[in-house]
Amino acid sequence: MGRYLLRRLLQLVPVFIGTTFLIYWLVWAVPGDPFAGKCGERRCPDQYIAFMTEKYHLDQNVFVQYGSYMKNLLQGDFGQTFSQREISDIIMTSYPNTLKLALVALAIEAIIGLGAGVLSGLRRNGFLDNLVLVSTLFLIALPVFVVGFVLQWLLGVQWGIIKPTVSSEMRWSELIVPGFVLGSASVAYIARVARTSIAENRRADYVRTAIAKGLPMRRVVGVHLLRNSLIPVVTLLGTDLGALMGGAIVTEGIFGINGIGRQVFRAIITKESATVVGIVVVLVLVYLVMNLLVDLLYAALDPRIRYE
């Protein structure tokens, strides 16, 4: 187990470096003047250019730049924006909001997705099953921006049930609709995976044994069937938490949530390269760590799996 963990951690390193370097290269090393449009209409003052060039080693090749960036990063220095704001500040203020949104989305996925999946898996080909199949198809097919836009317009503008945008206090109740939008496709996938898993395990021999033992149906389904069927669902949920945060750009934009997605989008558009890289570093790290945790969780859920 310990050796497996070590090996997995070592595998993460090249992936982490690769991904962050890719982004670093894309945002910094592209042809063109990095200072164009940075200081309003005028050209940037030479002093400023000199400072930033020094700070980010802009006169050196991209590998040196990346290396020194990473060195700073390891010491906790994310760098500053062109307007001298600490990037770590930006991340610290916006990250909790995204995490909150992602957690709401995850909860919705778990409740709606799992509930629908289990019910339809238990009653294959019934009315509910077909309803779940059709509605998940729609959720998978609808691009997030369409779902978000339609719900915001219908619920917020037309019917006035919710406020069209989320206030800066980020109350949990305000996050329900944005959370659903963010998790809409995943809800569908969770439901489908749960449905297939339940339907497959329903006829398993051990379920038959549980019935033959004279256990009440509640216990057969709730303990024996569910415990086995949940394994793929829980792992999917785990991976999704990492993915949701990286996918929050559109949702945060639509509902005006000051999260990491909105910050990174703004940074990309305004060419705040250091901010882009900083945020991507955090996102990739969370994603990789979540995937590792899911692997370990998998072993915990299924005793047949042992990592050597």
Partner: peptide, 20 residues
């Protein structure tokens, strides 16, 4: 591992960066 690198990029984020 190369695939992992590209897989690790959030889809929308990656596309926006490349395109901008």
């Amino acid at each position: 591992r190369i695939a992992d690198v590209f897989f690790g990029l959030p889809f929308v984020l990656g596309a926006i960066v490349i395109l901008t």
